[in-house]
Amino acid sequence: MSELLRVRELTKHFVSRRGKGRIRAVDGVSLVLRRGETLGVVGESGCGKSTLGRSILRLLEPDSGEIVFDGEDLLTLGPSALRAKRRDMQMIFQDPFASLDPRLTIGSIVGEPLVIHRIGDRASRPRAVFDLLETVGIEADAVRRYPHEFSGGQRQRIGIARALALRPRLIVADEPVSALDVSIQSQILNLMAELRLRFGLSYIFISHDLAVVEHLSDTVAVMYLGRIVEAAAIEDLFARPSHPYTQALIAAVPEPDPARRATRTVLKGELPDPENPPPGCPFHPRCPKAMDACHSIVPKDANIGFADRPHVVRCHLY
């Protein structure tokens, strides 16, 4: 399958509030997304996964790097060209309570992108909105109602309808199910899988939840302190998790199976201060396999897979 998106050495630093340090939220990230596929980005809070998602859509302005979408570098586009390009790239947010304007009706929320991008006219838009709501499983009478009248799962469906309005090719979904109840999560995940097939969508699926990422993704990138520490096809990553951080993340997922109540190795410590990342490999203070080199030398990417099916690990063990 052909490439839809290629990100090369993307970097986004923030100046810290105290004005002295720099937070390397995204630090030289490269990734590839093929058409019709889903790339999962997984990591703990503060690892830079949301900043990465927003930087790819240029909702945040990256400091440097390249974002080639459909053959065109987004970072070279002027404001109007970028706005036109945004039709192809939409976002679904985590919090369905915060991402829908409480004063707008559902009809206005879902129809707004059509108005902004001058698609259709007054006569045709209501029909389009009905179709979108039907697609995501929301009843048509919702158009005159307001967000507070809907549950979290229904609001997330409405957010998805809005994202679909412009028939995008890429959707960046940032923790789309983590605010939802277990029984609602699986409804939304199924909907997303169905829509991907039906509309030929590609997703960047950002989540802290490995099981959810595994379910929906074709490839996956594991982030730690602004960098991708391991990336591979989903089967390869779970068959052979290679970075000690990936291994620890997988081991930490609570198993709903008391028979497997694990005697697991619990990772020590917490994410270090992103303003003062440890020297060498940023994971070494928590790493059970840290060696001398890890304290001082930043590891480089190593491909432990194949040239046409890379499995990239950033660790001195490989």
Binding site: Q185, N190, A211, H215, E255
Partner: peptide, 12 residues
């Protein structure tokens, strides 16, 4: 309902 590690299913 929830997806489980190592048990990919087409639909949940």
């Amino acid at each position: 309902a929830p997806p489980r590690l190592g048990q990919r299913r087409s639909a949940l």
